[in-house]
């Protein structure tokens, strides 16, 4: 019992000491935007990741962790395993720990107002990465750093429109959607639909969620191959579902990339390999490498500068020929 008490006492002293060193920093506590101009090695950033649902996400996690290491900024990282409640509790714990900045990729678009309000009250600036939230109050976060999913859907749609510009009869398209309710699933579907409606021959005959996973894509595609009399093209909201669809198409005795064309979004390594092998026809890039840009934002905020409310990551598209050139130099 004595020992435990001793431990408690030691803990209390340690706590008091950290509190002292915290108070010693010159910045006025509680100033808007945290404590500006803190030395970088004293900054603590909490990052609430969605999960590790795909190769894309894994590359994203790695890049962020490495960028923080290089910049010498302390990173507290959590994995929400694709569940909003986990992510909310991770953000709450960051607020309680009094981190300087919080960055996160929201699992779904809605339901964030309360927890973001708590962060705002605690004067912790929030940076959204990769996915947006659907909130009327834009003061709840400083910036949204990430891809423009609607633009990605449009790029996919433009390739399809161009590919089938001479088509005389209906082109049957099936869509493998991302996680229901997630921003990339909604926006990639919207962007795609906006572009292909220009050509009445292009028709999405079936659309189901494959939850961004390979197994999901495979199982949905298996069923669609049997329920749809004719499928000309698969539009998958990410590479992993496209790769699952390839397996299902091959099992059905058809040739992916020829009998059924495949367009996906992401450009992760496995997807790019399938593209060079001719099993996928076109990939719209959605770059996960936003660690450096995130560090930039944090440095700017720390220096008291303003940042744009919307920062788009740099990304392009790949045809089969372009993929052959780009593949050896890809980081993920």
């Amino acid at each position: 019992m004595k020992k435990t008490l001793g431990l408690f006492a030691a803990g209390a002293v340690a706590l008091a000491m950290t509190a002292c060193s915290g108070g010693a920093t010159p910045a006025e506590p509680g100033a808007a935007g945290g404590a500006p101009n803190k030395p970088l090695d004293q900054l603590v950033v909490g990052f609430a990741q969605v999960g590790a649902e795909s190769g894309w996400r894994t590359a994203n996690t790695k890049d962020i962790q490495e960028s923080f290491k290089t910049a010498g900024i302390q990173l507290k990282f959590s994995d929400a395993q694709q569940k909003q409640e986990n992510q909310i509790s991770a953000i709450r714990s960051y607020i309680q720990q009094g981190v300087d900045y919080i960055a996160f990729s929201p699992v779904v678009q809605t339901g964030w107002d309360a927890v973001l309000q708590e962060a705002k009250t605690a004067n912790i600036p929030v940076i959204l990465t990769d996915r947006a939230v659907d909130s009327k109050d834009t003061s709840l976060y400083v910036t949204f750093l990430g891809s423009d999913f609607v633009a990605e859907g449009k790029k996919a749609g433009e390739w399809v429109t161009n590919e089938y510009k001479d088509a005389k009869e209906q082109v049957s398209i099936v869509q493998l959607e991302g996680t229901t309710g997630s921003a990339p699933a909604i926006d990639r579907a919207t962007g795609f639909a906006d572009v292909i409606k220009a050509n009445p021959n292009l028709k999405v005959v079936a659309s189901q969620t494959g939850d961004f996973t390979r197994a999901g894509g495979k199982q949905v595609m298996e069923a669609m191959l049997k329920s749809q009399p004719k499928i000309d093209l698969v539009y998958a909201h990410n590479d992993d579902m496209g790769l699952g669809a390839i397996e299902a198409i091959e099992a059905a005795g058809k040739v992916p990339g020829k009998d059924i064309k495949i367009v996906t979004v992401d450009a992760v390594h496995d997807g790019m390999v399938a593209l060079t092998e001719g099993k996928i026809n076109f990939i719209v890039e959605c770059s996960p490498l936003l660690g450096a840009q995130l560090i930039d934002v944090i440095k700017k905020l720390n220096a008291g500068e303003k940042v744009e409310a919307r920062i788009v990551t740099n990304e392009g598209t790949f045809t089969q020929e372009q993929a052959k050139e780009a593949l050896p130099n890809r980081k993920y």
């Binding site: 649902e53 395993q81 694709q82 939850d211 390979r214 197994a215 495979k218 397996e247």
Partner: peptide, 10 residues
């Protein structure tokens, strides 16, 4: 084996 990948979360 079916998804040719080990996915601890899913």
């Amino acid at each position: 084996s079916n998804q040719t990948a080990a996915d601890s979360n899913n």
